[in-house]
Computed example of a mutant assay.
Amino acid sequence: MAKIREAEHSTAPAAIVLAGGRSARMGGGDKSLLTLGGRPLLSHVLDRLIPQADKIAISANGDPSRFAQFGLPVLPDTMEGYLGPLAGLLAGMDWAQATGAAQIASVPTDSPFIPADLTARLMSSASPDRPALAASGGKHHPVVGLWPVALAGRLRDFLESGATYKVSAFAQECGAVLVDFPVIALTGDNVDPFFNVNTPEDLSLAEKVLEETQR
């Protein structure tokens, strides 16, 4: 896997890979370490994200040493309880803000085909106080987005309220805009670029997509 290097654009945002899911439909464990094309699923996500981000961290609880091979900061949730991806996003915002970043991109660890122009297109629609979220094929993908780190305090208050922990609800409260991305055209079918590997069947499909897109 490629090492972190200077991003192609000096204005590239920080990024957080959300790897804290429970992976119940995959039998538990770390979904990010499942093998796709002979390599960890997380490696495929990072290969696409590294050229688009100034710095990257992994959001995950538990022993961080299991991610040592990737050489990235591993950020545990800073709030108690299982609050879902928003808790990981909050940890990422706090980390990014401490490094001087103004924006942070979020992607899940189980979407190995994120577009190569993801952050550039999201940045073109985001603003200092408004996030931008990905959409494709008529579907919204709230976990894939670009967030002003200045929203960290607002996100903390949102989580502490306990009303809901849905990413889409927080995004709507912040007036998020949607950015549409084209589907991946395959032989006889189309695949959402934000397709999630949630089940063994999804992993088999991902192997097929990887094989065809690498030809």
Rank of each mutant, 00 (worst) to 15 (best):
A116D: 13
V17N: 11
A150N: 12
N61Y: 03
T35V: 15
L86R: 08
A98W: 03
I104A: 07
V45H: 06
S32R: 07
G29I: 04
A14G: 14
V74I: 08
L89Y: 01
T35D: 06
Q172H: 12
E6Y: 06
R215G: 15
M79F: 03
G84S: 08
F195C: 05
D94N: 13
V17T: 08
H141G: 06
S32C: 13
E212H: 07
P85E: 02
I16P: 12
D94V: 11
A206L: 05
V149W: 02
G138F: 10
A185W: 07
D110M: 04
D129L: 14
S168T: 07
G20M: 02
L122G: 04
D180I: 05
V167M: 10
E211A: 15
F195V: 08
F158S: 05
R121F: 11
V197H: 12
N61C: 13
L205R: 15
E211I: 07
P115G: 02
Q69F: 06
V183Y: 00
T199M: 10
L46P: 13
L90C: 04
P200R: 13
K3L: 14
S10E: 12
G28D: 01
A57M: 05
M1W: 04
R215I: 04
G38H: 07
N61F: 01
I56T: 06
A101P: 00
H141M: 05
A102V: 10
F158A: 03
G84R: 07
